[in-house]
């Protein structure tokens, strides 16, 4: 068989091209998929917590439990409020009885009465799922039961979850828990059923002090997005590289 140099080069180039181009390059989106992709690109949910405004009433925790059908008296919650009291000897007294569901109505922390005269500073920190851009909880799921939606919220598929608990261990923020009724992993999803209908999450709705607010980061006119982009905000455990999307105003070094 003879082969001219020209033919050889032609075939070699063609062969290389064909082997380099992946099949997926020729995948076409259906109309539905294309529309979903465009819609999702317009929304990225984020949360803003102003710890300076929080008075520790715990009504957000109560509303969350009722809204999301989390057993009221079980020690599990999708959101909770932590109290930090720093006394003048440098000690941080931290508590969150029942996640702060019943508010903080006295100065007793972990059975110890704190003398108000010794308090340097005190504040409340509401916590909830950070809806990370790199969610470690999703990476460890062995069955694909937890995932990130196009608008940034991490959801749990209750039908698909086998309740192995890897994700509960993997979350550096400890926001996941085992749902005592459905026997699956559960966590805050920014009240996905509410935000997708244009409503506020239950905790945001119940907060009388604007300490908790929801934002769409893709909407430059969103007033809360403006605060996140122009004011000094911080996130929890930035060093983990999870890219959390719950932003805090007034964080303290004692907050863990």
């Amino acid at each position: 068989m003879s082969c001219s140099r020209r033919d050889f080069l032609k075939q070699a180039c063609g062969g290389t091209l064909a082997s380099v181009l992946p099949v997926s390059a020729f995948t076409f989106l259906s109309m539905e998929e294309a529309r979903a992709a465009v819609e999702n690109a317009n929304v990225r949910w984020a949360f803003l917590v102003d710890t300076r405004k929080c008075v520790g009433c715990g009504l957000c925790v109560k509303a969350c439990k009722n809204e999301n059908e989390i057993p009221y008296d079980a020690p599990v919650m999708r959101t909770w409020v932590e109290r930090y009291v720093i006394t003048n000897d440098g000690t941080a007294h931290i508590d969150s009885p029942m996640g702060g569901r019943d508010g903080f109505i006295d100065n007793v922390i972990n059975g110890e009465e704190i003398d108000p005269d010794t308090i340097d500073k005190a504040f409340f920190v509401p916590k909830l799922c950070n809806q990370c851009d790199n969610p470690p909880c999703v990476q460890v799921c062995p069955v694909g039961a937890t995932y990130q939606t196009g608008d940034g919220v991490v959801l749990v598929d209750r039908e698909w979850c086998i309740g192995c608990g890897y994700c509960i261990m993997a979350c550096p923020y400890g926001v996941r828990f085992f749902h005592p009724v459905h026997k699956v992993a559960d966590k805050c999803n920014f009240c996905y059923h509410r935000i997708t209908k244009g409503m506020n999450p239950a905790c945001v709705e119940s907060c009388a002090f604007d300490a908790r607010r929801i934002a769409n980061l893709r909407d430059p006119d969103d007033p809360v997005t403006k605060i996140i982009t122009t004011e000094r905000v911080a996130v929890l455990k930035d060093e983990y590289g999870t890219k959390p999307h719950v932003f805090y105003i007034g964080l303290d070094e004692n907050v863990r």
Binding site: Y147, Q148, Y192
Partner: peptide, 18 residues
């Protein structure tokens, strides 16, 4: 991050508002 059952997104959207 995006490996999942697509209809579950709608299931969460249909969760009753209280």
């Amino acid at each position: 991050y995006n490996f999942h059952r697509l209809s579950n997104v709608q299931e969460w959207k249909d969760f009753p508002v209280k």
